[in-house]
């Protein structure tokens, strides 16, 4: 018994020594760690805890156990629609935006510096300008005969009556998803560009000597392994924006969208949280979204580990 205690004591002594030895490291991490703990971790944990309660914001929460989750999957048909829509949109916007970012970053990187800067700005601005451009797109795809696309299609005789681009449940998703894809070349794209510029160029010559024959081999065996950490960053960004899709949809088709054709999990969450004051229910939705994203991230990490192999 005393032996085990001694062992435990020695272990803690050792741990303490390691921590004391690294105290400068902890000092560096401390400011961010404290802010992270208070303003990110605490709210997230609180949100997850409240998802197990009935909470209308005005009265104290009452314990609900897994009621909210049961209701979501068993009784809420709209949530099932929202999940389906979100998965379909995320499956297009996530990988789509990611691949576009990667391809453009790679192609642009080959160009002379000045031209590259111009292209970087052109491809990146939609993600900054997406808000400013809402009216422009509404104008281009306007549902009356004066909308640009409708005017052209009518003039060429391709359609007889104007297409309701932002109201027809069949056409609507294509247009809106197209617009969202257009503005999805953002955070990840820039980090990929910066990462590509840090690749040590002498590796390419070494690769030539080692028998790399084509651009594709060069990309797969040298370029991509070098920017793996940026690829992971871009992937996480893609996942969060793909699953968090909602605000942009509301801007174009309003809420609720016609026929719930573009009703996403994000909409469902805000509907219950902001409009109906069912905070516990809303937070249960956000927790499910969170879990889905974590698993998605695990999958992406698995795929990224195979890059360059």
């Amino acid at each position: 018994m005393s032996n085990a205690l001694n062992l435990l004591g020695a272990y803690f002594k050792y741990k303490f020594k390691v921590i004391a030895k690294n105290r400068v490291n902890y000092l560096y991490v401390a400011p961010f760690f404290i802010l992270f703990l208070i303003f990110i971790l605490a709210p997230v944990v609180a949100a997850m805890a409240l998802s197990l309660t009935h909470y209308n914001v005005l009265q104290p929460p009452t314990w609900a156990g897994l009621d909210n989750y049961y209701r979501l999957f068993m009784e809420d048909d709209l949530f099932i629609i929202a999940i389906k829509n979100t998965l379909v949109f995320a499956a297009i916007v996530g990988p789509g935006g990611y691949l576009l970012s990667l391809i453009f970053a790679w192609l642009i990187n080959e160009l002379p510096p000045k031209i590259r800067a111009v292209f970087t700005i052109l491809f990146y601005t939609p993600s900054i300008a997406s808000l400013a451009c809402v009216n422009v797109f509404k104008y281009i795809f306007s549902g009356d005969s004066q909308g640009m696309v409708n005017a052209v299609l009518l003039k060429w005789g391709l359609i007889n009556s104007p297409v309701q681009f932002f109201a027809d449940p069949v056409v609507m998703p294509y247009v809106v998803i197209g617009v969202i894809l257009w503005s999805s070349i953002g955070t990840g794209f820039l980090s990929l560009i910066a990462g590509l510029q840090n690749v040590d160029r002498s590796q390419y010559e070494a690769g030539m000597v080692d028998g790399i024959k084509s651009r594709w081999q060069e990309l797969w065996y040298i370029t991509l392994p070098n920017i793996k950490s940026q690829m992971l960053f871009a992937a996480v960004m893609s996942i969060t924006s793909a699953f968090g899709i909602g605000v942009q949809i509301t801007q174009y088709v309003g809420f609720p969208s016609p026929d719930y054709a573009m009703h996403t999990v994000m909409h469902h969450m805000e509907d219950y949280g902001v409009t109906r004051f069912e905070m516990g229910y809303s937070l249960a939705i956000s927790t499910i979204l969170f879990i889905a994203m974590i698993y998605c991230n695990k999958g992406v990490q698995y795929l990224l580990r195979r890059v360059g192999k």
Partner: peptide, 23 residues
């Protein structure tokens, strides 16, 4: 800690507003 930070990125920030307000 690195893993924790990366995971936290995936929690949608709009729902943490309530707790943040209290803090």
């Amino acid at each position: 800690f690195g893993k924790l930070v990366r995971t936290s990125l995936m929690f949608s920030s709009s729902v943490t507003a309530l707790a943040t307000y209290i803090i």
